[in-house]
Computed example of a mutant assay.
Amino acid sequence: MTDSPKPFHIVFLLFDGITQLDFTGPAQFLARMPGAIVHTAAKQLKPIETDSGFAILPNRDFADCPQADLLCVPGGFGTKGVISDDETLQFLRDQAAGAQYITSVCTGSLALGAAGLLKGKRATSHWAYTRLLEKFGATFEKARVVKDGNVITAGGVTSGIDFALTVIAEIAGQQFAEFVQLGLEYDPRPPFNSGHPDLADPKLIAMLQDRIYRKQASDLADIIDRR
């Protein structure tokens, strides 16, 4: 670490229907890197409705957003709107062209794919949507964090914290990443062993698919196929 580290611009895309932890989880960790400046970018400077019943106010619109050193696209049910919106996809392409890292959490990887940024890349997403990655010329890799060149994708929601620590270790070193992890007491010990389909009761998987994910994945596939 230095007394005056070089600024490192982190740009998170915000959009209505975002899963807030996809954004706030990694943002909490990445903001502690030396020189980190976090920008929250949306099409308009108006409150963004999250999936948790509260809104987030972006601090940049697309025109005013600086060039990202790290671009991150969170996920959420609002991903459908992102991959349907040409202006947003062009913003991602423009930012990715000059970014040191192009990243996503959860279904944010589908937005990267729709912007043409995953072709020939290994990537991941939330477990219920990983089959859609091939529609963008990407290859699904089963891991919480997948790094292929300067493209880093994370699995569902809480994987964003693991992604952030991976990035911090690469940029600032493992010791500093451990320093941040300790400071934020990231020591996950969940009370139940059902956080991944490999571990969960098949009945729970079927319930989630029936109630939520099967339709959502089908809707996303239709949008992707129409583009």
Rank of each mutant, 00 (worst) to 15 (best):
residue 19 T to Q: 11
residue 224 I to D: 05
residue 4 S to H: 13
residue 15 F to R: 06
residue 45 L to V: 02
residue 216 Q to F: 07
residue 159 S to R: 06
residue 221 A to K: 14
residue 142 K to L: 09
residue 74 P to H: 09
residue 129 Y to C: 03
residue 225 D to G: 12
residue 1 M to G: 13
residue 13 L to M: 09
residue 63 A to T: 10
residue 51 D to N: 13
residue 153 T to G: 04
residue 167 V to C: 04
residue 92 L to P: 04
residue 46 K to V: 11
residue 207 M to A: 15
residue 203 K to E: 12
residue 223 I to C: 03
residue 78 G to P: 06
residue 171 I to A: 05
residue 55 A to G: 04
residue 90 Q to I: 10
residue 6 K to T: 13
residue 150 N to P: 04
residue 222 D to T: 14
residue 75 G to F: 05
residue 80 K to C: 06
residue 143 A to P: 01
residue 112 L to D: 00
residue 103 T to P: 00
residue 34 P to K: 13
residue 191 P to Y: 08
residue 80 K to M: 13
residue 104 S to N: 09
residue 38 V to A: 12
residue 174 Q to H: 13
residue 22 D to M: 01
residue 106 C to V: 00
residue 46 K to I: 12
residue 57 L to E: 13
residue 221 A to M: 08
residue 60 R to S: 04
residue 136 F to R: 03
residue 78 G to Y: 04
residue 24 T to G: 03
residue 134 E to W: 12
residue 95 Q to W: 03
residue 79 T to H: 11
residue 155 G to R: 04
residue 1 M to T: 07
residue 148 D to Q: 11
residue 191 P to T: 11
residue 191 P to W: 08
residue 19 T to A: 10
residue 70 L to R: 03
residue 161 I to K: 04
residue 76 G to C: 09
residue 31 A to V: 01
residue 171 I to P: 00
residue 148 D to R: 12
residue 182 L to N: 11
residue 113 G to M: 01
residue 34 P to Q: 13
residue 68 A to I: 00
residue 3 D to K: 15
residue 100 Q to V: 05
residue 87 E to F: 08
residue 209 Q to L: 10
residue 66 P to A: 14
residue 7 P to R: 14
residue 58 P to L: 00
residue 49 E to C: 07
residue 186 Y to K: 03
residue 160 G to D: 03
residue 60 R to E: 12
residue 16 D to L: 03
residue 91 F to H: 00
residue 128 A to L: 10
residue 122 R to H: 14
residue 147 K to Y: 05
residue 11 V to M: 07
residue 155 G to E: 02
residue 224 I to Q: 07
residue 144 R to P: 02
residue 66 P to E: 10
residue 104 S to Y: 06
residue 223 I to W: 05
residue 75 G to S: 11
residue 56 I to M: 13
residue 9 H to Y: 09
residue 204 L to G: 08
residue 172 A to L: 01
residue 174 Q to M: 13
residue 73 V to Y: 06
residue 80 K to E: 10
residue 198 D to C: 02
residue 146 V to W: 05
residue 22 D to T: 00
residue 41 A to L: 11
residue 63 A to N: 14
residue 134 E to H: 14
residue 181 Q to A: 11
residue 13 L to K: 00
residue 57 L to D: 11
residue 80 K to L: 10
residue 166 T to S: 14
residue 81 G to K: 08
residue 105 V to Q: 04
residue 136 F to N: 01
residue 27 A to F: 01
residue 28 Q to E: 15
residue 176 F to C: 06
residue 6 K to H: 13
residue 214 R to G: 08
residue 163 F to C: 00
residue 222 D to M: 13
residue 189 R to L: 12
residue 186 Y to W: 12
residue 51 D to K: 12
residue 153 T to E: 04
residue 220 L to E: 01
residue 42 A to F: 03
residue 175 Q to K: 15
residue 184 L to C: 11
residue 89 L to I: 06
residue 205 I to T: 05
residue 78 G to F: 01
residue 130 T to A: 09
residue 12 F to S: 02
residue 108 G to P: 02
residue 74 P to S: 11
residue 209 Q to E: 14
residue 54 F to A: 09
residue 112 L to I: 02
residue 21 L to S: 01
residue 163 F to W: 08
residue 191 P to Q: 14
residue 166 T to V: 07
residue 227 R to I: 06
residue 208 L to D: 07
residue 95 Q to N: 10
residue 184 L to F: 11
residue 178 E to W: 09
residue 219 D to Q: 14
residue 86 D to T: 14
residue 222 D to E: 15
residue 155 G to D: 03
residue 200 A to D: 07
residue 7 P to C: 10
residue 3 D to P: 08
residue 98 G to H: 15
